Amino acid sequence: MILKKHKETILYLFFGALTTFVNIVSYLFFTRVISFNFIIANTLAWILAVLFAYVTNKFFVFESMKTEMIFLFKEFLSFISFRLFSGFIEMLIMYIMIDFLFVNDIIVKIITNIIVIILNYLFSKMIIFNNLK
Rank of each mutant, 00 (worst) to 15 (best):
V116R: 00
I70W: 09
V33N: 00
A53D: 01
K58R: 15
F38C: 04
F62D: 04
I39F: 08
M91S: 15
A45N: 02
L101E: 01
K58F: 14
L101D: 01
F62V: 12
I70A: 10
I80P: 06
I93P: 09
F82V: 10
I114N: 02
I89N: 02
V116M: 02
L48E: 03
G87C: 10
W46R: 08
I70K: 13
F52R: 00
L92N: 10
M91T: 14
E75S: 10
L44Q: 03
T67H: 09
E68A: 12
N104P: 13
A45I: 06
F59W: 13
W46Q: 07
I115N: 04
F88V: 14
F100R: 13
F76W: 14
F60G: 01
N113Q: 08
M65A: 06
V55D: 03
N42F: 11
F36K: 01
I110Y: 03
S86N: 03
F73Q: 15
N42Q: 11
K58A: 09
T112C: 11
K109E: 07
I80D: 00
F76Q: 09
I34W: 03
L84D: 11
R32T: 12
I98H: 02
D99K: 14
V55N: 08
N57T: 13
S35T: 05
G87Y: 06
Y54M: 06
I39T: 08
K109G: 05
K74N: 06
V33Q: 02
F71M: 09
F36R: 00
L44V: 06
E68L: 13
L44E: 00
S64H: 12
L48C: 14
Y54P: 06
I34A: 02
T67F: 07
I93Y: 08
I107R: 01
I39M: 11
T56N: 01
N42A: 11
L72M: 13
L72P: 07
G87S: 07
N57R: 11
S86T: 14
L48M: 14
I34K: 01
M94P: 01
L92K: 09
L51Y: 04
K109I: 10
I98L: 03
V55R: 09
F36A: 06
R83P: 07
F71T: 14
V116P: 02
I93T: 08
F88K: 11
F88R: 07
E63N: 13
M97K: 11
V33H: 00
F102T: 13
F60A: 03
F71W: 14
M94R: 00
V61E: 00
R83G: 07
D99Y: 15
E75I: 11
I110D: 02
F73I: 15
I115T: 12
K58Q: 11
S81K: 08
A45C: 07
K109S: 13
Y54A: 05
D99L: 15
M97I: 12
S35C: 05
I93D: 01
S35H: 07
K109D: 08
V61D: 01
L92I: 14
F73N: 15
I107T: 04
E75Y: 03
